[in-house]
């Protein structure tokens, strides 16, 4: 499959008065048309920054220090602001986490749709209104005529998120960046929105990057998943492989810590805390919390290992099944430790 988006060795720094925050430390990512890639990780792992960097919206004082973001064979890091502005909305669209703050409270939905369409050189006048009406219908909004006349405060959160999805997809973008689109939304509504995104991107063959911290959401709609830790992707591959046979100890810990509604199991904990990115650890970033860390992990940058077809892990022991057994034993032991005695 042709790769539309290719990110290579992306580094992003935030100079602050306390020092430089190393937000992204060599992100590698590829995404093809019609694919949904889940980007997961905990707060501060760099998920959102990866998306913002892709569309040239890194908030100041953030600066991309090295790397390549290739869109359709072009390096976006060399694109001018005007070129990026044209790409955003036309070829690349974004949905954000809080639907309420993404809409302007002072304008009606029809006006906001029009502003959006005009900015991206889409239909005008009556044709634009017909298009907006049609898109709202497609995202399952009853009575689009009334909704177009409404202001955001008159609509529910779920309605607002549907409208934003309708806007984002109205220009038939080739890439959709969805940043936690269902976080803070009730589960029944989340199920509706996820299904909607899946159907729309399938029908328009949109490449989609879905950012979430919820492994359930990824399992539900993604084809591939990339796991981020401390500004790096530590494991990436087809969802069935990553959930069925994770090879990075962090992915394993993350999956083990996820509680499930369909079964009751002892709760797992990844001991320790995420590293301070003002002083990122050398070599393997996960080694301080890793159940199988060895001397090499502090000395050598872990290589990216292809552990199975299309599944890559950034770990010295990714191909070592003996090491997994050790990690499993360690996790079992931790289950017996008093929570007060674990580092926080």
């Amino acid at each position: 499959m042709a790769k539309l988006l290719r990110i290579r060795d992306l580094h992003l720094r935030f100079p602050t008065f306390r020092g430089t925050v190393h937000a992204l430390n060599g992100v590698d990512l590829t995404l093809g048309a019609g694919q949904i890639l889940g980007l997961v990780g905990e707060t501060g792992s760099g998920k959102s920054m990866t998306a913002y960097a892709t569309v040239g919206l890194v908030p100041p004082p953030g600066r991309i220090t090295s790397g390549v973001i290739e869109w359709n064979g072009r390096n976006l890091l060399r694109a001018t602001d005007a070129e990026l502005q044209r790409l955003r909305g036309q070829e690349i669209s974004m949905i954000f986490q809080s639907p309420r703050t993404s809409l302007n409270p002072l304008f009606s939905i029809a006006q906001q749709f029009e502003i959006y369409q005009r900015a991206h050189g889409q239909a005008k006048g009556a044709a634009a209104r017909a298009q907006a009406h049609g898109m709202l219908e497609r995202v399952g909004i009853p009575d689009p005529r009334r909704v177009l006349r409404s202001y955001p405060h008159e609509l529910s959160t779920g309605m607002c998120q549907r409208i934003l999805i309708a806007m984002a997809l109205s220009g038939r973008p080739r890439l959709l960046l969805a940043d936690e689109p269902t976080t803070g939304i009730d589960v029944t509504l989340q199920a509706q929105i996820l299904r909607l995104v899946r159907e729309l991107v399938a029908s328009q063959n949109t490449a989609t990057l879905l950012i979430t911290h919820d492994l359930g959401v990824v399992a539900e709609i993604c084809d591939r998943v990339a796991v981020m830790y401390a500004g790096r992707i530590v494991e990436e591959g087809p969802v069935e492989r990553i959930y069925g046979d994770p090879r990075h100890p962090y992915t394993q810990g993350l999956i083990a810590s996820t509680l499930r509604v369909d079964e009751q199991k002892p709760i797992h904990i990844i001991p320790g805390v995420v590293p301070n990115l003002l002083v990122p650890p050398s070599a393997c970033m996960f080694r301080e919390r890793c159940p199988i860390a060895a001397a090499t992990c502090a000395q050598l940058e872990p290589p990216i290992v292809e552990v199975s077809l299309g599944q890559h892990a950034r770990c010295h022991f990714a191909a070592d099944t003996g090491a997994f057994a050790a990690a499993e034993r360690q996790r079992a032991q931790l289950a017996g430790v008093r929570p007060q005695d674990l580092t926080v």
């Binding site: 029944t188 509706q192 299904r195 359930g216 399992a219």
Partner: peptide, 23 residues
């Protein structure tokens, strides 16, 4: 319906069951 709407972290159990409509 509430239980059925919770995503399960297992891609083999991807849901096809009906989703609760409305709000």
């Amino acid at each position: 319906a509430l239980l059925a709407a919770v995503p399960v972290p297992d891609p083999r159990q991807r849901r096809t069951r009906p989703i609760l409509a409305g709000e």
